[in-house]
Nucleic acid binder design. Structure first.
Lengths: 272, 272
DNA sequence: GGACGTTACTTTACGCCGTAAGGAGTCGCA
DNA sequence: TGCGACTCCTTACGGCGTAAAGTAACGTCC
């Protein structure tokens, strides 16, 4: 896991909120900057999107901009702060309260929100690897939070419960996205089919642990009861077929969200 | 975030399930091994517990055993596999189906389970930093899974839904534990009070972003409505006072779990 | 009992990483 | 014209994971 939010809080925050660069039109002394914080962040995000968090190094980001690693340090205090900036920058893609319309009540609105956030994480899986150890406190992260709170307001629940729900829903979507991203990673790992990956694993497991079924009766029983009913194929016509593990992860997300929303429903009728 | 599950699956699995070391009494040629896989894993876990994942290096683990980094490679193929072994080893602390008694029905049992798992993660916060990208498939992780499935069986729900619930409950507890661990980390960061950390942050924020309240009305409104009612202090008498952010995180866990269980309840009455 | 092959462990080294320090070149302004 | 500020580069240091090769302890067989 990669850390963020380590540097000097003042410096980090003023970078995040773009409170630097006092007059943008002032042509001070020295050569014109041929880079910018935004360009660096964009390059770093592109790199992480394409090659994963493991490939993110100051040298690699510098290369991508035709510059050395040390050139970045003119704009950014260090890798940790760069990570903060990347994290907040991509969060601009989160659904926003303005664009979001909630026609069919809070439940439909939350379902749509969760789906969009899931897709966001799947688009930028490296975000899931940024340690959540303390918040980054950037503008776009706050905007995303604001959207969720706005949607939750429509449930009519009191502020205390609302705060807890925020802390429940975000991690839930994160966890689901992690599962989907993992499924994709596994599919890409062997280069070929996703079943191959599992086949190699489970064959080895069965050979090494012949008494698996007796040692873990509950898990074995669950698996023996067969996979879920074949996907009804709602809305996925035409698109390329989604491989099985990812379909499973997405179904888990759907059901889990339903359970959560049922729970919110229960809290509503219970407390009003 | 740190990766695991990268190496050769065969080798990883046979290490995890201890299917190596054919005759333990055979005195082959060469000097006696003065180390063992278990000793290395124990040292590595102790190191991670005490100094965090960032301090975990092959050299550091070697030092702790009075040996060089390279000595470990006789027992373990690489750092990635060592991480797998550490991960599974600590999972032995998860509540087990045998020891677990569920006297008061599935709801109480699941509540107790979740609480124990939360404490487990808080005890070993580095586990939360081990990337979930594909499962480690170790015996203790499977045992923990088996326990949860056993408890869930008592709900009487069908296997399909059960599988989804497993995928919902574990990430939920993980996310909650992350929040608690973060709160502790923040408290330890400034060395002094946890309010200090927040004070420095929010003062800087307010100064840099004077129009915060207008830009994020929903979040501001939520915070303005004051913190949750003072903790009723149930069962915490005598113990040292839990700092505010951690109390918040634990309360979020409690409420979120309640919502989830309400949702399960709804599924039960809906489908039976 | 001495040579031999196996094994545990060490030393050295390579190519990565983040980044500190200092130098080179470019520009606005006095 | 020169000074000072500024961007960007080169070099270097100490860390990392681990490959390669060397050293020493041990069981076995002649």
């Amino acid at each position: 896991m990669v850390f963020a939010g380590q540097g000097d809080p003042r410096r980090s925050l003023s970078l995040l909120w773009r409170a630097d660069a006092p007059p943008p039109t002032r042509g001070g002394p020295g050569p014109k900057p041929r880079l910018s914080v935004d360009a660096i962040v964009a390059a770093a995000v592109a790199l992480a999107d394409e090659e994963g968090m493991g490939a993110l190094s100051m040298r690699a980001v510098g290369d991508r901009l035709g510059r050395t690693a040390m050139a970045l340090y003119t704009y950014v205090p260090g890798k940790s702060e760069l990570l903060d900036l990347m994290y907040d920058a991509v969060h601009a893609e989160l659904p926003s309260a303005q664009t979001e319309s909630h026609p069919a009540g809070w439940r439909a609105a939350l379902t749509a929100w969760a789906g969009e956030v899931l897709e966001f994480y799947v688009r930028h899986p490296w975000v899931l690897q940024v340690s959540q150890a303390r918040p980054v406190l950037g503008p776009h992260e706050y905007a995303g939070l604001d959207t969720l709170v706005t949607l939750l307001r429509a449930t009519g629940l009191e502020a205390g419960v609302l705060r807890r729900l925020v802390g429940t829903l975000f991690p839930f979507v994160r966890g689901s996205a992690q599962a989907v991203a993992d499924a994709r990673l596994a599919a890409a790992a062997t280069g070929s089919s996703d079943e191959e990956w599992w086949a190699a694993r489970s064959a080895a497991l069965l050979e090494l642990v012949p008494d698996f079924a007796e040692r873990f009766p509950a898990v074995s029983g669950l698996e023996a009861e067969g996979p879920a009913e074949p996907y009804p194929g709602e809305g996925t016509e035409g698109a390329e077929p989604v491989p099985y593990p990812e379909r499973e992860a997405r179904e888990t997300f759907r059901v889990g969200l339903g359970v959560l929303l049922d729970g919110i429903e229960a809290a509503r009728v219970g407390r009003t």
